[in-house]
Computed example of a mutant assay.
Amino acid sequence: MVHLKVVPDDRRERTRELKRQRILAAAGAVIDREGLAGVTMQAVADQLDCAVGTLYTAFASKAALLAGLQAEAVATLEHSYRAGRARWDEDLATEDVEDSTRPLVELLAHAGFLAAAAVVYPDEVALVRELLGEAPPTAPPLERALAGELLPVVHRVLDPVVGRLGDAVDHQSLQPGDPVARALVWHASLLGVLRLDRLAPLDRHLFRAAPLARSLAEGLLVGWGGDGGEVEVASTWVERLTARGPLAPPPQ
């Protein structure tokens, strides 16, 4: 009797994941060379020196491939944010910061992180910007089948701000409000204003994205019930944190 050799499921899964990672790495190389707009299934296949059909065995569509890239981008930014926040926590632990001010400091530091990440991790920030709705006209439409895959990634983007907004409400630094809706407004607004850096050659003083992002973040906090004086104090603390080290630590 001939017995078929059964490949364990975990080995199959590892093989599939290795294929996905090779394709995502090739797509990343295309982005490095041609930018996000240059990512097509054919360009990625050419980078891998394989048939286009090979890509479809791992990703059902270009939208699915972009979703995979976005998940990796979020993971990279999460790593940088956690490293930066660990240093903020150490620095603030040695300082006499009011409990009500601390969440505002962390929120404004997050705005500074996004501004710094746009410089240190431009491709990752571009992918997150597209994830949150600012897609170029050539981007494939969002597929309903990807909703279950993308929604957790969106929440991973929002969670740090959702948590800090909750802390601010708990300490009565902000008025109560839907933290998820506010986090969406926070990211969409800040990622939008950071695009003004493209106009820097016209006027490097007027179109400085980082100060504009800080001003926008301060305005949002005041609009959500924050005391203007306390927000100003929090902003001063963020300036100190910025002077002590990068808010978005670069890749190791």
Results as ranks from 00 to 15, higher is better:
residue 76 T to Y: 05
residue 89 D to S: 11
residue 80 S to A: 15
residue 82 R to A: 15
residue 96 D to W: 09
residue 73 A to D: 05
residue 91 D to N: 08
residue 63 A to D: 11
residue 60 A to C: 07
residue 95 E to M: 11
residue 76 T to N: 11
residue 93 A to P: 09
residue 88 W to T: 00
residue 57 T to N: 11
residue 79 H to I: 01
residue 79 H to P: 00
residue 95 E to R: 14
residue 90 E to P: 06
residue 79 H to A: 14
residue 85 R to M: 15
residue 66 L to T: 00
residue 65 L to R: 01
residue 79 H to S: 14
residue 73 A to N: 05
residue 83 A to W: 03
residue 63 A to H: 08
residue 67 A to F: 06
residue 90 E to G: 06
residue 57 T to R: 13
residue 83 A to D: 08
residue 95 E to W: 06
residue 63 A to N: 11
residue 67 A to K: 03
residue 79 H to F: 09
residue 81 Y to A: 09
residue 71 A to N: 12
residue 90 E to H: 14
residue 84 G to Q: 05
residue 60 A to G: 15
residue 63 A to C: 09
residue 93 A to W: 12
residue 59 F to Q: 00
residue 91 D to L: 14
residue 84 G to H: 03
residue 61 S to L: 06
residue 65 L to C: 05
residue 61 S to D: 13
residue 78 E to S: 13
residue 97 V to M: 10
residue 59 F to N: 01
residue 75 A to E: 14
residue 80 S to M: 04
residue 92 L to H: 11
residue 65 L to V: 07
residue 69 L to C: 04
residue 80 S to Y: 07
residue 62 K to H: 11
residue 63 A to T: 05
residue 62 K to M: 07
residue 79 H to R: 13
residue 93 A to G: 12
residue 58 A to F: 08
residue 70 Q to I: 01
residue 57 T to C: 05
residue 97 V to F: 08
residue 89 D to E: 13
residue 85 R to N: 15
residue 88 W to N: 01
residue 82 R to Y: 13
residue 95 E to A: 14
residue 71 A to P: 08
residue 69 L to P: 01
residue 91 D to Q: 13
residue 64 A to C: 11
residue 95 E to C: 09
residue 61 S to I: 03
residue 86 A to F: 10
residue 59 F to C: 03
residue 88 W to A: 00
residue 91 D to G: 01
residue 95 E to H: 04
residue 62 K to V: 05
residue 91 D to R: 07
residue 82 R to I: 08
residue 66 L to V: 07
residue 96 D to K: 12
residue 73 A to M: 03
residue 94 T to N: 10
residue 94 T to P: 03
residue 74 V to Q: 03
residue 73 A to V: 05
residue 67 A to Q: 04
residue 93 A to Q: 12
residue 73 A to S: 15
residue 58 A to I: 04
residue 78 E to T: 12
residue 69 L to R: 00
residue 80 S to D: 06
residue 68 G to C: 05
residue 68 G to N: 02
residue 65 L to A: 02
residue 68 G to Q: 01
residue 72 E to V: 04
residue 89 D to A: 12
residue 66 L to K: 00
residue 82 R to C: 05
residue 93 A to Y: 11
residue 72 E to W: 02
residue 94 T to G: 11
residue 57 T to H: 13
residue 90 E to K: 11
residue 78 E to N: 15
residue 67 A to C: 12
residue 94 T to Y: 10
residue 73 A to T: 05
residue 97 V to Y: 11
residue 81 Y to M: 08
residue 95 E to D: 13
residue 69 L to A: 04
residue 74 V to H: 02
residue 84 G to W: 02
residue 74 V to K: 00
residue 94 T to W: 14
residue 61 S to E: 04
residue 75 A to D: 14
residue 84 G to D: 06
residue 96 D to P: 05
residue 71 A to E: 15
residue 88 W to C: 00
residue 92 L to I: 10
residue 74 V to W: 04
residue 70 Q to N: 08
residue 75 A to H: 12
residue 79 H to Q: 14
residue 58 A to H: 07
residue 64 A to R: 11
residue 67 A to L: 10
residue 72 E to C: 08
residue 91 D to F: 07
residue 58 A to N: 07
residue 83 A to R: 09
residue 78 E to Q: 15
residue 81 Y to R: 13
residue 92 L to N: 10
residue 65 L to G: 00
residue 93 A to E: 14
residue 77 L to D: 01
residue 76 T to H: 12
residue 96 D to L: 13
